[in-house]
Write a protein that binds this DNA or RNA. Structure first.
Length: 406
RNA sequence: UCCGGUGUAGCUCAGCGGCAGAGCGGGUGACUGUUAAUCACUAGGUCGUUGGUUCGAUCCCAACCGCCGGAG
């Protein structure tokens, strides 16, 4: 128990400055007896991450509307950046010249960079997939560019992210089994090329090195998910992600995709569900043994006027809040708790930037408290109760006063 | 007072002798490895008033009322 406490303390305080002495590692500190949930500790070059954790999305090197110091205050331990977007603008070599992503952005805790694989899906109208890689029409100026597994690895290495994702193809939904199999085969060949690049360009092992996570694909097909997981594990990576989820499939399919991959992933490596999810989904995924999450939902819906509460999402722009003097929630972060719902609604209707900032701050606070609560519950042996009571209240349609996580 | 212009959705304005329109604003919803302070849906009308012409008038005509400009 002492080592758990020590690790938790380490994790909570993180590691504010770069320390190349940290040895990259992942430890499972506690497991839940009633589910596959685990409480872990991921040590990365720029700090320690307590898992399960939610990673705010900062595509362009910025978590939209928020200052890095605010992210620290919220308890964020690791954030995302995106290879495709940073490659196009301002360019990875420029970022490298200016000291890497951490120096460039002043976010000095861990960074995870997505490989650009997701843009193969999300920018489908602007791209063409081949064996070599993906030809994109640059959405900024229309010029044609080729992103390959090797280039993605190279870009992520020069950005200096703590965790680099492998370059994959994220198949669309729906997707027939033949295409899913063909897509998976390509993703696996790309994974081998990424591994070759890593072996050739990263002679260092151990301290301060960049981590690499493979990405399980296979759409909704159980055998393909299993195959994908086994092939990636055979290649050997620092962690494993489950990709190709939340691309339009029903939620039940999404959970099945996770269930069909997790059993084939090593217990002693971190697992990452890419692009997920809603608050209840996060807890369901933790119960299934997932350690890392990222999602644009808290920040995007915040900018669109939705605040997360224990009683479900609250649309702050709605007329019902026009004269409501109450705060968003009884235990919101002090930066937000002082504002009435009426004022927040006013800010949105007036188009004030503060509105977007306050709700982004609040929603990330909600997500980070949600996973912090899960971590504590796993250690305390009360995770199932924590999950069930949260979901019961969150999804109850006739809710009374929205409250934050106590 | 005279002359001219103009009255259409909450606002700014299209329109046309034959089913009343847009943008914004209002209301509601969506958003899941961010091309997204975005997108979708929806509710609002005695077309200033009263007459006339016409099979039919928001539209053409007249008077009146309001507003804007010019002259005096």
């Amino acid at each position: 128990m002492k080592s758990i406490e020590l690790a938790i303390r380490l994790g909570w305080h993180g590691n504010p400055t770069y320390s190349p002495c940290l040895t990259v590692s992942f430890s499972v500190l506690a497991t839940d007896s009633a589910s596959s949930a685990r409480r872990g500790c991921l040590v990365l070059p720029h700090g320690t991450v307590d898992t399960p954790i939610f990673m705010p999305v900062g595509t362009q090197g910025s978590v939209k509307t928020l200052h890095p110091a605010e992210l620290v205050e919220l308890g964020a331990q690791i954030i995302l950046g995106n290879t495709y977007h940073l490659w196009l603008r301002p360019g990875h070599t420029l970022i490298q010249e200016l000291g890497g992503l951490h120096e460039f952005t002043t976010w000095r805790k861990p960074f995870l960079t997505d490989s650009g694989g997701f843009q193969v899906w999300s920018l489908a109208k602007l791209r063409k997939i081949s064996e070599d890689g993906v030809r994109f029409q640059n959405h900024l100026d229309g010029s044609k560019m080729l992103l390959t597994p090797e280039l993605s690895m190279e870009i992520q290495a020069s950005l200096g992210a703590d965790i680099a994702m492998l370059f994959d193809e994220c198949p669309p939904y729906p997707c027939d089994e033949a295409y899913a199999a063909k897509s998976l085969a390509l993703t696996t060949r790309w994974a081998r090329r990424c591994k070759d690049w890593i072996t050739a360009h990263e002679p260092r092992s151990g301290d301060g090195r960049q981590c690499h996570f493979g990405i399980v694909q296979g759409s909704v097909y159980a055998d393909l998910r299993e195959q994908s997981a086994r092939e990636l594990v055979a290649l050997g990576f620092d962690g494993y992600a489950i990709g190709g989820v939340s691309v339009g499939e029903p939620e039940s399919e999404m959970f099945r995709a996770i269930d069909h991959a997790v059993p084939f992933l090593p217990h002693d490596k971190p697992r990452y569900a890419m692009g997920l999810g809603t608050p209840p989904q996060i807890l369901e995924m933790i119960a299934r043994g997932v350690d890392l999450f990222d999602c644009v939902m808290p920040t995007r819906v915040a900018r669109h006027g939705v605040a997360f509460t224990l009683d479900g999402p609250l649309h702050i722009k709605n007329l019902i809040h026009a004269k409501d003097p109450r705060p968003l929630c009884s235990s919101a972060h002090p930066h937000v708790a002082g504002f009435s719902r009426a004022y927040l609604r006013h800010l949105f209707r007036a188009g004030e930037i503060l509105a977007l900032r306050l709700l982004s701050f609040h929603n990330l606070h909600f997500y980070l408290r949600l996973v912090a609560g899960a971590r504590d519950a796993i250690v305390a042996g009360t995770f199932s109760e924590y999950k069930d009571s949260f979901i019961r209240r969150y999804t109850r349609s006739e809710s009374l006063l929205p409250q934050c996580i106590p």
